[in-house]
Each structure stands twice: as C-alpha cells, then as structure tokens.
Design a binder for these strands. Structure first.
Length: 471
RNA sequence: GGCGGGGUAGCCAAGUGGUAAGGCAGGGCUCUGCAAAAGCCUCAUUCGUCGGUUCGAUUCCGACCCUCGCCUCCA
C-alpha cells in the first residue's frame, strides 16, 4: 500500500512520492524552535508530530535526512538579550540546550542536522543578493531590504498557495500598523532588517547596512543549503502556513534555483494546534504549560508523548491533565502486557506478526491515522492478554509478540517499560509472605504485605505465584 | 468582512452510503484465605438542529445553531 499524506498545497490527500528517482531518499525539513523561552506543550505537539512523520518514513524504508532549524536571532530574542543584559549566544544557548533535552525526554529522534540561523548569515545574504538581482527585493529608504510581493506576482508566480488569500478583501490587522517600516507595500516582508540602536551587539555586516536577517529568510537559506533547492517535505504548525511558509516559498522560488518545473517543496504538512483544558492556551488562563511544568506535576515525557500522539495531526486536540492521567493508565495496560510477555518469552527470538504490523502500517499510511493505529495496538494487547491468560503462548509466540511491539514502537516511540530489578530485600519479603500463606498464617502474610506496601511495592498474586511491582 | 477546521458515550478520540474502532472512567465477572493487582466481559438503536437526495444518511446536499483557528508576534 502506498503512503498518503495531506498536502497543504493541494488541500487534499496525495500519494507521497519522493523526488529521489530511486524512491528512497527523503528530505524532511521542520520549522524548529525560536529559542527565546522554554517550548510549550503546543510547540511540542508539532515536534512530536514531526518525529512521527520521520519515524514512519523510516519504518517504511525511506532514508530520511531530517533538518530542523534553530532560530536564534529574532525580535523577541533581541529584546530579551537587551533586558537580561547578556550576549545573544549566552541567552540562546540556555534555551537551545533545554530544547534538546526536552526533545529527548519526549523520545523524539534528534534531527540529523539542526542548523542555527546565526551560523548561516552568509547563505542568507547571498540568497537576498539573488533576489535583489532578480529585482524581487529592494532596499527601502530605511535601509532594510524587503521582498516585493507585487513584483513576485508580476513575474508570473503565484503568492498565496498554502492559504487562500483574497488580497482585495484583506483587512489589514492592527499588527500591520505596529510594524512601521518604509516598505513599498504592506504585504512586503523584511529579508534584512537594518541595525537599530536597540539591537545592541546583535548585527552583522552586509552589502546593505549592518543588520540582521528577517524572520523567514533563514529557513529558505538553510533548507536549500542542506536539502537542495527542491526537497520533499516541509513541516510546521498550522499558523506557520501564512505568512512564514508562504514567504519561504516566495523567497526560495523567487531565487529560481530549482530545476525547471520543480517546486521548492513538494509536500507541505501542517500540524493543528491544541487547546488546553478546552481553551486556547494562554498564560492568563493558567493553561499555558511548558514541558517542565508538566514534569513538575509528576508526568513523564513518555506519558506526554503518548497523549500528543493519540489524535490525528490535522485535528485540533484538547490537551488536558485528565487526559494525561488517562494516558498513564493506557500505557500501564501496554506495560503489563509487555512485562508478562518478557517473562513468557524467556529470551527467545522470533519474527513480528506480519498481520498485526500490517494493520498498524496501513492505518498510518492513510495520512498518519494514528488513532486507528492505536486501535490496532490495543486490539492486539487484548488478544495477547487473552492468550497469556489461557497459557496458550509458548516462548516463541511470546517472543514474536515482543518483536511485533518493537516494530510498532519504532514508530510510536513510547518504549517498553523499564525492566525493574527487585532488590533482594524485597524478594525475600515476598518469599516470606508466600511461605506464611502456605502455612496459612494469614496474619503474618498480611503484615508482610503491608510492609512491602510501605516500602513502595505492590504484590500481585497470580495462580502461578506472587509478583511485586512498584506501587 | 474574507478564509479554513470542528461538533460522535461521562471524558478523549477514529470511522463508514448499509446500520458506530480504540483508550480512560463506570458496571459485571474471574482469580484470591481476604484483599490488592491483573485479566476478561460489558458499556452510543445513535453521530449539533432542521430539511432534502436515497431502498437506506452519522456519512452526500442545503439551511441554521454552537465552537475553534488564520488574515503579517505565533507550533
């Protein structure tokens, strides 16, 4: 079965066919963090979604080159650098480090390349030079360089392909008036912002005035440098479709570096936003969570990842603390099954169950229908538990089930439960209780049970004897 | 004003022109000395409202109600 993905360009689900004639290599670019603060749960939804795309492509046998930019120069960053009286690098390094740590705690595979905007100033400048040479960009009297959307449209290109734009009906928002530059048209956007005193030490020399890159240009410069002028997949949150991605297309295709007839990006994917506790996330509503906020509430990256992966990426998802609690229970159900399988497998090796993996894969091939994929996972868990309960799984069958999980989890990335070693002290208490029960000394047995519980271990009595697990 | 998502059980969430996946919670049961834990079973005559098309609509069409988002800070 072929892989189908929604493409924002066509607003329809399309078969994914890589540009690589061999059909094997895939270039994947995701808009990464702007490192001015800790990423919030909405940001993380997008990054977990990107990770799902990357993992599933690899699952399907593609060789993926995954690039994620780090935007480390931008208005908010500069303002905070000024306010905190630090250097740009010192300021951004802190959030960049936190970002990668948190990315890891959500079990997202690290992108192969994570270029920083500040380390690609030369590429940015040369891209702007190309646009000026093609007369699509101009230096305004204020010294900044802008991209002219009108000239771009007049050159036969279309602007507004990701979102339907009605230029006539466009009601200039308040933000436009806040953004007072001397550009020729309101819709024009900055490629290079001339240095102003508030920028402090944050500026670079350029063929124009000293200054810094505009917001969108770094993604064009870095993605084309690392993936080529035309590549397969570009991902980001839905809000980035306009203007960020629209402007990226304009800059990148305006520079005309693509082979004839080939687009800058073949396939655009946008992840929907999330609501938190049914409301749009905002600091004043108290429903603005960073990853560390949730960790402080006792939730693990694994639980958060699971919850973020339960809903389809194009649907607005309602992220709640109750949902996180439910996620914990759901994972426990999987963990129990896996733990029992490990006992039953006794280290045997076997191949995955092709029909279970096939159903799982088919669900994701259908525009990443992760909910349907989980449906298959839980049907499989139930069936496995049933066979485990009736003792009809031999070691090889159990090993096959474990291999089945491993295969699916290579995409899901929620992992197997950690193998818990029972300390000798606990094991001997358990043994003592078993002996007491055998001797029908229930008073002592109950006392030992209470003692174990006090030490944080819960006894699970089964027909085959007792087990303990962390309570 | 323009454009685009949504409204499916107590909560979260798939899905289909032919009678509603899955998870959590709830209920029942099994196991047990009693518990706990775990497991199994069960849980929507119905998919925002009203019309239309159809043998048949939750699904297609129309209208309406509600809700969320984008329209140059944004994941």
């Amino acid at each position: 079965m072929s892989l189908k993905l929604f493409n924002t360009l066509s607003r329809s689900v399309e078969e994914f066919v890589p540009l690589d004639p061999a059909g094997r290599s895939v270039g994947l670019y995701c808009c990464g963090p702007t490192v001015y603060d800790f990423a919030h749960i909405g940001n993380w939804r997008t990054f977990v979604f990107s990770d799902l795309v990357r993992r599933f492509l690899e699952f399907r046998g593609f060789s993926v080159r995954h690039v994620m930019n780090i935007t480390d120069v931008e208005d908010k960053i500069i303002r905070r650098v000024r306010e905190t009286n630090t250097s740009l690098r010192e300021f951004t390094a802190r959030f960049e480090r936190a970002f990668f740590e948190e990315l890891k705690s959500l079990n997202c595979l690290p992108p192969h390349l994570t270029p920083r905007a500040t380390e690609h100033i030369n590429e940015i400048i040369s891209l702007i030079e190309k646009l000026i040479a093609r007369r699509l960009a101009y230096q305004a009297p204020d010294g900044s360089v802008y991209f002219s959307i009108e000239k771009y449209r007049n050159s036969g290109r279309s602007y507004g392909r990701l979102v339907r734009l009605n230029f006539e009906a466009m009601r200039p928002g308040q933000r436009v008036s806040n953004d007072e530059y001397e550009k020729e048209a309101v819709a024009d956007f900055a490629l290079w912002k001339r240095r102003v005193p508030e920028d402090g030490a944050v500026f670079w020399p350029s063929p124009w005035d000293e200054g810094r890159p505009g917001w969108h240009i770094e993604c064009s410069a870095m993605s084309m440098k690392l993936l080529g002028p035309s590549f397969d997949l570009h991902l980001g949150g839905e809000d980035l479709a306009f203007p960020h991605h629209e402007d990226e297309i304009a800059q990148s295709e305006g520079a005309d570096l693509q082979p004839p007839g080939q687009p800058f990006v073949k396939h655009w994917l946008h992840g929907a936003h999330l609501l938190v506790e049914g409301r749009k996330m905002s600091k004043s509503l108290g429903n603005y969570f960073t990853l560390r906020d949730l960790v402080a509430k006792g939730f693990s990256g694994r639980e958060i990842r699971y919850l973020l992966l339960t809903a389809h990426y194009r649907e607005t998802f309602n992220f709640t603390l109750d949902g996180l609690q439910a996620a914990r229970q759901s994972l426990q159900r999987i963990d129990e099954c896996l733990t029992k399988l490990r006992e039953a497998a006794r280290g045997a090796q076997a191949e995955p169950d092709a029909s279970v993996v096939g159903r799982f894969s088919a669900a994701l091939e259908d525009d990443l229908n992760v909910s349907a994929a989980w449906g298959g996972v839980f049907d499989w868990v139930r069936e496995t538990n049933r066979r485990l309960a009736e003792n009809s799984l031999d070691a090889v069958a159990a090993a096959s089930a474990l291999a089945t999980w491993a295969r699916m989890d290579s995409v899901l990335g929620v992992g197997a439960p950690p193998q818990i070693d029972v300390p000798p002290e606990i094991a001997s208490l358990l043994q003592a209780r078993q002996a007491a029960r055998q001797a029908r000394d229930f008073k002592r047995a109950d006392a030992l049970r209470a003692e174990l519980k006090a030490k944080g271990w819960v006894i699970e009595d089964t027909p085959k004897g007792g087990r303990v697990k962390r309570g």
